[in-house]
């Protein structure tokens, strides 16, 4: 029982990383019908930005704001920085080729992904970087036999809160309705007076910013980052996006959390070596039964 609960918590934490990154994929896909391959690398870049803020500012930021304040500053800086980076990527890599059809833009996205990860390597070196130990809050909470680090708990709570906020924003506000309408049918939405550039601005700022937050949290939790970090997380998050139904933001959250929990439970109770085999088998089965993903809606074929 203890083990089940612990594995479930572990899975939720990993899953919340996947979910945060997956939301970015899903938002961009919904509006642009583009798989933003650079998204995973923006996540890694966010992690490095947070790292740099903590390393450079470790002394005074922590002194002025306290250790949690330092973390908050790092996260905010990374989110704003990567949000802007997302807008820049859209402006230079996607907008110019948007009208050229779907293939050129996919190639452009792949190129952007390689550009960013190699850029990280060139700037911060190809070696592992360790988040500074003295900037990471070190508390551990015990609930009976279950121990959880304070950082992990905060990661989980903040991620869930943020997901709830994005859910509210997209599903319950007028602006969210505009985003969803654009995802459904861009042309009609524009005819109805929805400002398409504003929606683009929103998805390319908020998506990468969420990724950047996940990146800093990953650094704080695991203490170790490397330039190709975005590849692994990007792939898993993309899987989560498909699992939940691509283009559907709540779907991305559920897909991410589900993927994390499945991985954790299978690794804990069956076999670590077979984890990925199992998880992707489940993914294939789900896609056979529900090709549009868990909560993706069936979209009428255009005739």
């Amino acid at each position: 029982m203890r083990m089940l609960l612990e594995q479930f918590l572990n899975g939720l934490t990993i899953g919340s990383f996947y979910a945060l990154v997956a939301m970015g994929y899903s938002m961009v896909y919904g509006v642009m019908k583009l798989i933003n391959f650079a998204h995973g690398d923006l996540f890694a870049l966010g992690s490095y930005l947070g790292y740099t803020v903590l390393v450079i500012g470790a002394g005074w930021i922590t002194q002025v704001f306290g250790i949690w304040g330092g973390v908050a500053v790092a996260i905010t800086a990374a989110m704003i920085g990567i949000g802007i980076a997302g807008l820049v990527v859209e402006r230079i890599a996607y907008r110019p080729v948007y009208k050229a059809g779907r293939l050129p833009i996919v190639v452009s996205a792949l190129g952007m992904s390689i550009f960013i990860s190699n850029g990280i390597m060139a700037i911060w070196s190809p070696r592992f970087q360790a988040y500074p130990q003295n900037a990471i809050p070190s508390g551990i909470l015990s609930f009976g036999d279950i121990r959880i680090t304070l950082v992990k708990l905060v990661t989980l709570l903040v991620s869930l809160a943020l997901m709830a906020f994005i859910y509210w924003l997209v599903e319950r506000t007028l602006f969210g309705a505009a985003v969803r309408a654009t995802a459904l049918d861009r042309d009609t939405a524009t005819l109805m007076g929805i400002n398409f550039s504003k929606i683009i601005l929103f998805v390319f700022f908020v998506g990468p910013a969420l990724g950047a937050m996940a990146g800093v949290f990953a650094g704080l939790n695991y203490g170790r980052i490397i330039f190709n970090l975005g590849w692994g997380y990007g792939l898993k998050a993309f899987t989560a996006t498909i699992l939940g139904g691509i283009g559907n933001i709540p779907g991305a959250m559920i897909g991410g959390l589900l993927l994390g929990v499945m991985e954790s439970l299978f690794e804990g109770f069956v076999s670590g070596a077979w984890k990925s085999v199992f998880v992707f088998l489940v993914l294939i089965i789900i896609l056979i039964v529900r090709p549009t993903g868990l909560i993706g809606e069936k979209i009428a074929e255009k005739v």
């Binding site: 572990n10 990993i14 170790r224 970090l229 670590g272 984890k275």
Partner: peptide, 13 residues
């Protein structure tokens, strides 16, 4: 699985 960051599942085990 190498190259991952979260090994809490196996640690719990």
């Amino acid at each position: 699985t190498p190259h991952e960051s979260d090994y809490s599942a196996v640690v719990s085990q």
